[in-house]
């Protein structure tokens, strides 16, 4: 059986600057993979190549049998099947929470107003925010906005979810409310690729941990192995872990 997401020797350049170097990995259906690494190591870039928000010049990415780099691939259709959650939430500020949840369901998936609304409110309820359906994003706290963003992505019935540092723009007291939603999602069997430095989250639900440095995947191993014998990790990973595990 082939994996849900497969990356084969993906490389990307910005002009002369190589951001990604020969990145290969695979995410199986139902697997939770955490991507970590120092700032500027290319984590965001890597995760954005998966749904073609960032083009890449070399290698191959296959998502559920579709080749992302193939010019013939219908990218909007591909993206509609992959949920993505951003560091800065990126709710649409001119639309109400309900409209945020329904607009793509209606316009992209062609669902009826009623169906979209029902689905959106179902997921809004799941993230514990049903009472806020009529509000606008600006009226919610960061943690609440991020939960809405997760509900928005889930409303599209994605086959996999991508997270790019979903909690790093949040005040510390709001981190857990978002992580709780993600943990629950992981337990339900959602295929997830998460860029995050929340090692507690990784310990709890990750199947595998990927460590990136300078655009390359330096470590890609099972969670138990990654957190097991720290001394067996690469020097860069040890250095990184010692820094973020301090607090």
């Amino acid at each position: 059986m082939s994996a849900m997401i497969t990356l084969k020797n993906v490389s990307k350049w910005y002009g002369d600057f190589q951001v990604l170097t020969d990145c290969s990995t695979a995410v199986e259906k139902g697997e939770v993979v955490v991507v970590c690494g120092p700032s500027g190591s290319g984590k965001s870039t890597l995760i954005k190549t998966v749904n073609a928000l960032e083009p890449f010049q070399k290698g191959e990415i296959i998502v559920d049998g579709m080749s992302v780099g193939d010019p013939k691939t219908d990218l909007p259709k591909l993206r509609a099947r992959i949920g993505m959650v951003f560091q800065n939430f990126e709710l649409f500020p001119h639309l109400s929470i309900t409209e945020n949840l329904t607009i793509a369901q209606e316009r992209v998936l062609g669902r009826s107003k009623d169906e979209a609304r029902q689905k959106g409110l179902h997921y809004l309820d799941r993230v514990g925010l049903k009472a806020h359906a009529a509000k606008f994003p600006g009226q919610l706290s960061g943690g609440q906005q991020q939960r809405v963003a997760i509900a928005r992505a889930l409303s599209m019935d994605p086959i996999a979810m991508l997270f790019d540092e979903p909690t790093s723009a949040l005040d510390p007291e709001m981190v857990n409310e978002v992580l709780d939603v993600m943990v629950e999602l992981a337990h339900e069997g959602m295929t997830m690729m998460c860029v995050t430095h929340e090692m507690g989250f990784a310990r709890k639900v990750a199947n595998r941990v990927i460590f990136m440095d300078k655009g390359a995947i330096v470590e890609d191993c099972a969670k138990e192995e990654f957190f097991g014998d720290i001394k067996a990790r690469s020097e860069r990973a040890q250095h990184f872990l010692s820094k973020i595990l301090q607090h």
Partner: peptide, 21 residues
Amino acid sequence: SKGQLNAAYALGMTYGQAMRL
């Protein structure tokens, strides 16, 4: 911000939809 366009694309919108909506 570019993030808004990315969010629209990530939801499967085309360029035209992302701009218009």
